[in-house]
């Protein structure tokens, strides 16, 4: 089974371990914008944990062929990609982090360099709205167009 193809529609929330790992590879990349190789990441995790962790095994986790990593593997992965460990260990916080990672990826894909925000007491709905807006900008930058009226 090949890794999921990138689509123009919003991604489903990363909920399985495989989806969570895949999201990390997609969003947090090398400075050159290429994705990290499995070997690079696995090697860093081996060095961090002192445990064995092959590139093949990491690929299996990422594609859902295996789902039995050790706690230390996941901690090392989280550390490499600079996400809180709660991403893997806490359902609610993990879902929030997954959503923010998608937003971060969208910002990067839109060629966004910086964001300034003038807001007072931004509610959760407000943050969701901003994500929508940035998504529209991302699509515009890619040439897909988009409008920002009610109901969007």
């Amino acid at each position: 089974m090949a890794p999921p193809e990138p689509t123009a529609t919003p991604r489903p929330q990363a909920s399985t371990l495989a989806e969570k790992i895949d999201a990390l590879f997609r969003v947090v990349r090398r400075p050159s914008h290429e994705q990290f190789s499995h070997e690079e990441v696995a090697k860093a995790c081996r060095e961090a944990t002192g445990e064995s962790f092959s590139a093949t095994y990491l690929w299996q986790l990422r594609t859902g062929r295996r789902d039995n990593p050790t706690k230390r593997h996941l901690e090392a992965l989280a550390r490499f990609f600079q996400v809180p460990v709660a991403y893997f260990f806490d359902d609610d916080r993990g879902a929030a982090i997954a959503k923010e990672l998608e937003l971060l990826g969208a910002l990067r894909d839109a060629g966004v360099r910086s964001v300034a925000l003038r807001a007072v007491n931004l509610s959760p709905e407000g943050v969701g709205t901003i994500s929508d807006m940035i998504d529209v900008i991302a699509r515009r930058e890619r040439g897909g167009g988009g409008t920002l009226g009610s109901g969007d």
Partner: peptide
Amino acid sequence: LIPVTDRPHTPCGLLVTTDRADC
């Protein structure tokens, strides 16, 4: 300049700087 309407929870203003333009 991108006007946004009917979004009561919107922050008043948002500046997004991309490689091509400031929005």
